[in-house]
Design a protein around this nucleic acid. Structure first.
Lengths: 350, 350
DNA sequence: TTGTAAGCGTTATCAT
DNA sequence: ATGATAACGCTTACAA
């Protein structure tokens, strides 16, 4: 009757219990279970039998502690599990790390820096072998400097950290956005609306907005503040689109800066029966090709983003001690129709 | 120079290191960090300062081991992280357990019973506080009987376990499917195709097929094997739909037994320009309401499914020792247009 | 108010 | 080929 404060039920058998049943020492059981050499066949048999009979399961916590190794888990912090972009990222991470027998521990920060820090601390206390973080806007990651010094593989994903130099994997947000807007310009548009993420301080939002402005500037088009809107959820974007269409000289095209806003823009246009407004979105989504017209997007590969971060983690675990690096993954313009709608008023020839 | 086999870098400071710097014993540091009473203010200060200076982080593994508690994590095994249904389930679990300070450890089984068993073993070795499993078809969960005996809260989700009595949370698959098909019958259809999950042995597939047959039988319609198809991925369902439309007396309506197959069916119909075939799907999906026509579905609440399983886990952790129970969550028919297309040939009056 | 010793379940070291 | 003992980092008696 050991005084173990378990959830209830019979206490779980330990190595010693197995040893006792098998009539050997704990060390021997350990040897057998770890396939160490120098064990006689009969002993081996007896130990295995005893373990099976008791339903023995090694305690990985105790093992890790003794071996001084960190846990065999990689922590991943994402802002929102229900957003398909982030769940694809998670899938990419999981597929990559499990080739090395590592597990995924997932936590959600709800896009809140305080909560992000709290879950990061929990993961670190659990001795995760590495940490991948999609940082929330407004955070400060200086507190992770020590961890890096202590050798923790730490990679930031989709957005760079604040006040800390660390490995980072991001999409080519600026280039992608610029190419999207240039695409619209090429189709004759000069009044191009922007519907961005929230908050406006978010890295991806800022970069994509830079790309938007750059493409306009390149085309000699002035940025009209009346054409700049935002909204994080679909419904916000629906409202934003309505506002855009109501300005005195409304846009003939809209660039939607992420998957959710793009869905909102598309919804708003579909509901109001406007099939003349061109749309290009950032980040692809299911059914973008089935809508009428198909939605032209700048696609980023979410799984690849996750896999790339995971590979970086593995390299660090393998002893790569080179300086922090930033990897930028190219985006790809996927032409489907909505981005090729011509501007209604033909551009006058030069 | 302690001989710790860390990933590299400086070894991490321990309680003793902090004690040494603060000039107190480890016990005192422990007291301060756990806010135990009986500590003088100055000592407290010094300890806190030392901990901060060293960047000390308590080792949760060591703590749990001593306290005899299990890990503060709940393990969740799902077949596929990239499937929005399962990521919503995960979101529901996460939101619920974090109200109790528990973390989510997620693993993917790839719908493979062998892999499922392997990841379950890894999670158990990690001493997860509880386990929620979406079991793959063809598995045998008898090996978990001991765990239940040892008091491990264990809940099966979306599908029941094989060869084991344990808590289970599922949707009303039979009822939902039957109501979907009855809905089509009500709109005059008598040639109703079925596009099911893969494998055909999958619990949800079997239940939904039972519902399909039941609804047909109730309407006095014989099941025509030529109208039964299947496909797990969208593309398979696209092909399945094409085959259905090619049979001598093709269906005027299709019941798609899950979200992916439904997307495939809708895609196939959209691409072939068939707007006359009615469709009802099982499980809702984004944009189902934006397509032309909107897709009528039997919606199940994936997040609620996850939350319900998590609540069951919490109850078990709180000491609920009653027998294994099965919870069935109702589905809801969401009418959007595709399921209300009338059968082209009017049904002759009786 | 603070410290000492023991022990959680495992593995490493050194014997035998 | 096998075992006794210490140790991993922490908390819980029990002293002082």
């Amino acid at each position: 009757m050991t005084p173990r404060a378990r959830t209830g039920g019979v206490p779980r058998p330990t190595l010693h219990d197995v040893a006792q049943v098998a009539g050997v020492s704990a060390r021997t059981v350990s040897r057998v279970l770890n396939d160490e050499p120098g064990i006689s066949a009969p002993t081996r048999e007896r130990v295995l039998a005893a373990a099976a009979q008791l339903g023995f399961r090694p305690n990985a916590m105790a093992r890790n502690m003794r071996v001084g190794a960190r846990d065999s888990a990689v922590g991943l912090v994402i802002p929102d599990l229900a957003n398909p972009f982030f769940s694809s990222v998670a899938a990419g991470v999981e597929k990559t790390i499990r080739t090395r027998g590592l597990n995924l521990v997932l936590a959600s920060s709800e896009e809140d820096p305080a909560r992000e820090r709290s879950v990061v601390n929990v993961l670190l206390a659990r001795q995760v072998a590495a940490l991948i973080v999609v940082p929330s806007a407004g955070g400060d990651h200086g507190y992770l400097r020590d961890e890096r010094r202590h050798g923790l593989p730490l990679v930031f994903l989709d957005r760079p950290p604040a006040r800390l130099a660390a490995d980072t994997v991001v999409s080519a947000n600026f280039d992608g956005a610029a190419s999207a807007v240039a695409h619209l310009v090429r189709h004759g548009h000069r009044r191009i609306g922007f519907v961005g993420d929230v908050p406006a301080t978010l890295y991806t939002r800022r970069e994509r907005f830079r790309g938007y402005r750059h493409a306009l500037a390149t085309a000699g088009i002035a940025v009209d503040p009346a054409l700049i809107e935002q909204g994080h959820h679909q419904n916000d974007a629906v409202a934003a689109t309505a506002r855009l269409l109501a300005v005195p000289e409304p846009p003939t095209a809209i660039f939607a800066a992420n998957n959710l806003t793009c869905m909102g823009v598309v919804m708003a246009l579909a509901r109001s029966g406007r099939r003349d407004v061109a749309v290009v979105g950032f980040d692809d989504f299911t059914f973008a090709d089935l809508l009428q017209p198909g939605v032209t997007v700048v696609a980023q590969d979410a799984e690849l983003l996750g896999a790339t971060a995971a590979h970086l983690v593995l390299a660090r675990m393998d002893g790569d001690r080179t300086g922090a690096r930033t990897t930028v993954l190219a985006t790809r313009l996927v032409v489907r129709g909505s981005g090729e709608l011509p501007a209604p008023v033909p551009v006058p020839p030069r």
